[in-house]
Amino acid sequence: MSTTIKMTIDGKEIQAHPDQTILQAADAAGVYIPRLCNMKELIPHGSCRVCTVRCNGRPQAACIQPVADGMVVESNTPELTEHRRAIIDMLFVEGNHYCMFCEKSGNCELQAMAYRLGIATPRYPYQFPHRQVDATHPDVLIDRNRCILCGRCVSASRDVDGKSVFEFVGRNSHKRVAVNAESGLGATALTGADRAAGVCPVGSIIRKRTAYAQPIGQRKYDHQPIGSDIEAAGQK
C-alpha cells in the first residue's frame, strides 16, 4: 500500500500522507491556507472557519478535514477570500479591538490576518460590547474585550497543561471564556509558565510584564504577512 497520496490545491499537485488534514498537507507543501484557531501542537476543532476551503466542491474546514487520494481543493479563490474577510470583519466588530494600545499589536494573528486580506475597516457596524478584564493573577491577565473565542486556551490548558483552567460558558453573543475558580484567574492553578498562558492569538490572555518588548518595525507581522514563512518554505 502506498504511504503517500496525490491531491491538488488551487491546481498545484501535492503529495500528502493519508493521516494528514488538508491544512497539514498544505503547510507541508508550502501552500498557506489562512487560519486563526488552529495551532500545530493543539487538537484542531474547526471553530473559527477561516480555513474553510472547497474540497471537491464542498465547503470544509481544512484544519479538520482529512485528505483523500485525488482530492481537489480550492483555497485562494475570490469567493473564499470574501468569506474569510467577512469572518475577520465580524470578529473585529463583535469585540473591542483597540490596536493602538494593545500589547499584542504587531504580533497579533487577528490583526495580521486583516492586514493580509487588505482590510482597511470592517464593513459591519461596531457592537461595543461590555466585557470583563480579570487581572487577579500575579503573572497573567485576561482582557475579554479582545477575545475571539478561538478556544486555544481551553484546549492548551486541558490537553497540554492537564489543568482545565479555561472553559467556554454562555451561548451566542454571551459566550465567553470562564476560569475554574469563582474569584477569578488568580485563584486557579494556572502559572505564568503554562502553555495556556502563551497560546492566545490575540491580546486577550497575556503574560504580565512582557508588553511592548519589541519596538515597532521589529514585530512579527510589521513587514511580512502572516503565512509568509509557510509560503517561503514551499518555494525552496
Binding site: F92, N96, H97, Y98, M100, F101, A120, T121, P122, Y126, F128, P129, H130, R131
Partner: peptide
C-alpha cells in the same frame, strides 16, 4: 474616524 478609537472606550 474608522472605529471610534480611544474616545470610543466610553461606549461601554
Amino acid at each position: 474616524a474608522t472605529m471610534g478609537g480611544i474616545p470610543a472606550m466610553r461606549n461601554t
